[in-house]
Nucleic acid binder design. Sequence first.
DNA 1: AGAAAACTTCGACGCGTGGCGAACAATTAT
DNA 2: ATAATTGTTCGCCACGCGTCGAAGTTTTCT
Lengths: 224, 224
Amino acid sequence: MRVEPDIATVARAIGEPARAAMLLQLMDGETHTARRLAEVAGIAPSTASAHLRVLCASGLVHATDAGRRRLHRLAGPEVAQLVEALAALAPPRLPGSLQPSPPTDALLTARICYGHLAGRLGVDIAARLRRDDVVPALEPGGTAAVPDLHHPLLAELGIRDLDPARPAVRACVDWSHGAVHLAGALGAALLTGLLAAGWVRRRPAGRALRITTTGRKCLAELGF
Amino acid sequence: MRVEPDIATVARAIGEPARAAMLLQLMDGETHTARRLAEVAGIAPSTASAHLRVLCASGLVHATDAGRRRLHRLAGPEVAQLVEALAALAPPRLPGSLQPSPPTDALLTARICYGHLAGRLGVDIAARLRRDDVVPALEPGGTAAVPDLHHPLLAELGIRDLDPARPAVRACVDWSHGAVHLAGALGAALLTGLLAAGWVRRRPAGRALRITTTGRKCLAELGF
DNA sequence: AGAAAACTTCGACGCGTGGCGAACAATTAT
DNA sequence: ATAATTGTTCGCCACGCGTCGAAGTTTTCT
């Protein structure tokens, strides 16, 4: 008797361009209305309704009724990790310099990845904290504890302690640069700290972040 | 401009029952002919040929010509991790005891997961080595070093040192039991050790393993 | 109360794609 | 040399499913 897991239905739920676009939008960790998700996917609201039913049925998305509208969010961090794992495998890493995408783009510079910082800035900060021995060397997907938080960047952002309920730091593969950035409690604290300090600001739509002029100045002073 | 990763095509490649069955078969880490993969998927060879073209084009499977036949294998460990991540999310963990699958099954007892040991036996060994402080506590997906290999089970299997080229131990989520089993160099050494000692034996087809009578006896003596 | 907004349901249309068998090419076995 | 095996290509068929607009429901705004 076969008891193979039914990975096909889960993958099929993701393997539709409109639904994939919705999931990527939900990767910002926020809740979104059906209308907004229809917009980012470029489809009619009625079509989006059917798609969202599929995503909810497959356990990838949770929906809660809130008055006349319905709020959707990712079902959990495992879903976010799955989406990132797919994204890391998506462009089969064409060898050499054949990169059709423009070298500079808002999403590549800085973006939100399910509650933590990703993109060029996320990768750079991760490399810096690694170099300064704040975080240990990490395999992609690996987690670790953070012994002490003594670092000029963390001090500047007012990060003095971490949420003990979640793993202190997790290495999340960054699909855009082939390196890792920091998730976990420290990754979340970095994002909120950067936003609170006004160094980065959320763009009106999507997951992309904009680095403010003051942020650029302060980061440069720290050696970024 | 949108530079979202194209996760849809990768997921679409997996999201087809026949292709998913092929991938699950390839999870044993071996190479398989197109004919055999058609067999396990329950489809005609001509159909399998088309499916394998899709899997190769999406970078999930590698094929090498060997005379009149073609040998297929998973493209790499990242693909195996992706499949396991999907499998862990596949049955949305129905709460309580509503488990339609029979409690005992060959695949659930012991199986190969891309070169290392999985299933009930893999989970039990992982828990034991954790209890005896051979491996540290690990988040799912996390990796760690293994300071020393002093343990009756490892001594019995002749595991004295590990391949330094790969991470010593990685926690791989086990879709069948909701716990973790051991991958990485230690996980691979455990599987080869168990096979060499004759405690488990490969079934003629598929990933399932059979625990031999001597294996059952020796494991019982060690407290399993 | 009336209007507007968010979302769902329904029916209809059309393309994509998975399915098969037959025929062909390439390689190995007898 | 002949046969058997492996795998691919090619039509052909049919079902699935993504798409939309119109209509209906519920809730909120004015």
